[in-house]
Amino acid sequence: MNVLELENVSMKYKELFALQDIDLAVQKGNWISIMGPSGSGKTTLMNIIGCMSKPTSGKVVLDGSDISKENDKGLTLIRRDKIGLIFQQFHLIPYLTAVENVMVAQYYHSLPDEVEALQALERVGLKNRARHLPSQLSGGEQQRLCIARALINFPMIILADEPTGNLDEKMKKSSWRFSKNYTSRALRSSL
């Protein structure tokens, strides 16, 4: 069964097409990489799948429901319940500790649970860094913190926009391995 389906999705800014007639089908447990040159519309596609933008035309079906017809509030709820986001620039909240950064995602999803958040940090090897601020973590640690935050609410789809762009080779491999393992173990989909 397809978790995500895109049919003839287009995104147009004034006269310029950022995306044109895109079709895509993603099944549960798929681990997909989308590659393309700069300006090819990867981030635009991520934003549409991540419910942060609506396509100009076309249909986006996520978990059986057409999200292209949802209003802003509906998109927010889908984002909260079904999507996990990992960013190239991490986007951690600088004044919150590692565990608090994970708990923020819980707070907006359901209820913050520090024990669960610490377990998530343990899974990414950051348990001993739980009380550190993002500025006290290395790039790789920040990225793993980002992963822990994205996975804490067990999303249906993990969207990672150039997640290893700021990491060295060793860290890149470690991050990929972790995401891939999670996707296959938890039968989730990663893009």
């Binding site: 991540g50 942060m52 509030k73 927010t76 709820l77 984002r79 909260r80 319940d81 999507i83 986001l85 986007h91 909240i93 923020v104 995602a105 907006y108 999803h109 935050r149």
Partner: peptide, 16 residues
């Protein structure tokens, strides 16, 4: 602004 954007991306509603 980035922090607000991040919270919204994580599913924070306007009222939150």
């Amino acid at each position: 602004r980035k922090e607000i954007g991040l919270k919204k991306a994580m599913g924070a509603e306007n009222k939150q």
